[in-house]
């Protein structure tokens, strides 16, 4: 009888939230790490320093900037984790896809500006491209990307740069 009366006197059980918060935080951390690893649009490169470099504009949908990574080690160009090349021999051998061809397909998804007077072709593309190149790599590699862009009427280009001063503050 005494035992029963004690049970009756106990307050209502309250849910213990701490383990749930623990699990939620652990899940957040897990998904953050997983998403970071799957972020293939930006390759690990040593960028050149430029204090005037601006933050990328917040664009959405079709106006999103295409990141082109010019790799120094293997001589390839990576876009969204896929390797492309500008080397005609490698394209002919079927080893890698052509960057110019890829950009041509990508550009079809973007609007075009009014044709330039005197030019028979379509107007320039509104597609934006950001070129990320290794600071010690030859500019020729960037020029090859420029060339592929120009062939497809893409002129809105930018170069990625690091804002961290190599000489320190």
């Amino acid at each position: 009888m005494a035992k029963k009366s004690r049970v009756e006197q106990d307050p209502e059980p309250k849910p213990e939230l701490t383990p749930m918060i623990d699990i939620v935080f652990n899940l957040i951390i897990f998904f953050m790490i997983v998403s970071e690893l799957s972020n293939l649009t930006v390759e690990d490169l040593q960028l050149a320093y430029a204090d005037q470099a601006a933050k990328p504009p917040k664009t959405a949908g079709a106006e999103k900037i295409l990141q082109i990574n010019v790799m120094e080690q293997d001589g390839l160009i990576k876009v969204r984790g896929h390797a492309f090349t500008t080397d005609a021999k490698l394209i002919a051998a079927g080893k890698y896809d052509s960057l110019a061809k890829f950009l041509g397909i990508e550009a079809t998804g973007y609007e075009r500006e009014e044709p330039i007077p005197g030019s028979p072709g379509p107007g320039p593309s509104k597609m934006r491209v950001n070129i990320r190149a290794d600071k010690d790599g030859a500019f020729q590699r960037v020029q090859e990307v420029f060339d592929a862009c120009m062939r497809n009427g893409i002129y809105k280009t930018s170069l990625a740069a690091s804002k961290d001063d190599p000489g320190g503050p």
Binding site: K55, I116, P122, N130, T157, A161, K163
Partner: peptide, 21 residues
């Protein structure tokens, strides 16, 4: 990662596919 930015530098508009002089 280092703080990354971008510098806009457009290519000549009147070059490339089907463009004039």
């Amino acid at each position: 990662r280092s703080q990354e930015g971008m510098i806009e530098a457009f290519l000549p508009k009147n070059r490339g596919q089907g463009s004039g002089t």
